[in-house]
């Protein structure tokens, strides 16, 4: 059993506990917030989960997540463009996204295999430049569903595209019920945990084991007859596809597609979440993904209302940012320390 609770988690838990106690003291209804935090867990959870394959293959945090996100956005745009709605719409969007993500992921992997050892920094800038490149694309994208086009210009994609009439909230609204004032959408949760389980299963197979071995010890893996570059490529594709599915889940829950520069900022929150979950930049478990995803989002959910009640909104907002950045830094320093001792 891996030790789950380490100083970073303790800091976060203490912060969360203080917030919760304050919330109770201020009579803020906690049950609704708990429901929200679950929705958020899933909304962002898949994106957090998408970091896992690359971490496990020793490629580091995928700061190039925008690559996967853009693939997802493209997939969803296609689905919307062909007026696919409801469950079928979401499924179509995911299918398109996954297919595009495989292509993008493959190219992205080619690049990352060239920058071994410095993937994180290279990926950061690959992500940034890819987003700018896609901005060029969005402004002239040849889609023709009028619901996606600029209202004044009449061509090119809108900044945000509403999904309500297509497949917005289909997962959220599946098997939704109330219990003790907590709104739980079972469909959404089931989907997430099913996906987690699927990832878990994949890591049980031969290729999954090879991925983990490459991440832990590339030389060993090579000596065991593994084609290291192939495994790394597969891991990157896997990450990219999950990233694409992640944005699909995110967008259907949020109800809008956000294009242009929106994907730029997707990677840092996901990376923060996974580090808060206790990953140290090496092999990461699904448990850490879920824990980190939940803690990170729970803080967002609770800190907002509490801060507003206390009438010092900016304070909480800045403190929250400070805490997250501190934890990421801590994880970087601490994670390295662990490896040195090994």
């Amino acid at each position: 059993m891996k030790k789950f609770i380490r100083p970073p988690q303790i800091i976060i838990l203490v912060f969360l506990a203080v917030l919760t106690i304050t919330a109770i003291y201020l009579h803020i209804p906690l049950n609704a917030m708990f429901g929200d935090s679950l929705v958020r867990l899933v909304m962002n959870g898949v994106l957090v989960l998408s970091l896992l394959p690359m971490l496990n293959a020793g490629i580091g945090l995928n700061f190039g997540l925008p690559v996967g996100v853009v693939a997802g956005l493209l997939g969803m745009c296609l689905a919307v463009n062909y007026h696919q709605t409801g469950w079928f719409g979401l499924a179509a969007a995911m299918l398109f996204s996954a297919m595009i993500a495989v292509v993008f992921g493959y190219l992205y992997a080619l690049l990352l295999n060239k920058v071994k050892g410095r993937e994180e920094i290279a990926a950061t800038f690959v992500g940034f430049s890819f987003v700018s490149l896609m901005c060029l694309f969005w402004s002239v994208a040849p889609f023709n569903n009028p619901a996606m086009l600029w209202p004044i210009g009449g061509k090119g994609m809108r900044l945000t595209v509403g999904l309500k009439d297509y497949f917005g909230k289909v997962l959220n609204n599946t098997w939704q019920f109330n219990i003790l004032g907590i709104k739980i959408s079972l469909g959404l949760l089931l989907f997430f945990f099913l996906l987690c389980f699927l990832v878990y299963l994949i890591y049980k197979t031969k290729i999954g084991r090879a991925m983990i071995a490459v991440g832990e010890n590339e030389d060993f893996a090579r000596l065991s007859g593994i084609n290291v570059n192939r495994v790394r490529t597969l891991s990157v594709i896997f990450s990219t596809v999950l990233g694409a599915l992640g944005i699909c889940v995110y967008a259907q829950s949020y109800g809008f597609l956000e294009l242009y520069t929106a994907p730029l900022m997707m990677a840092f929150p996901a990376a923060s979440a996974i580090l808060i979950g206790g990953s140290t930049g090496g092999k990461t478990t699904i448990g850490q993904v879920v824990l980190g995803g939940y803690l990170y989002q729970a803080i967002y959910v609770i800190s907002g209302p509490v801060a507003n009640q206390l009438l010092m909104p900016e304070f909480a907002e800045i403190i929250r940012m400070l805490a997250t950045n501190l934890i990421i830094l801590y994880a970087l320093l601490y994670g390295e320390g662990l490896r040195k001792n090994a």
Binding site: R118, A122, F128, S129, V131, L133
Partner: peptide, 14 residues
């Protein structure tokens, strides 16, 4: 322009 800025760094790193 922003593609140029970020692309430079990415490209140079690679």
């Amino acid at each position: 322009r922003s593609f140029v800025a970020y692309g430079t760094i990415a490209f140079a790193l690679v």
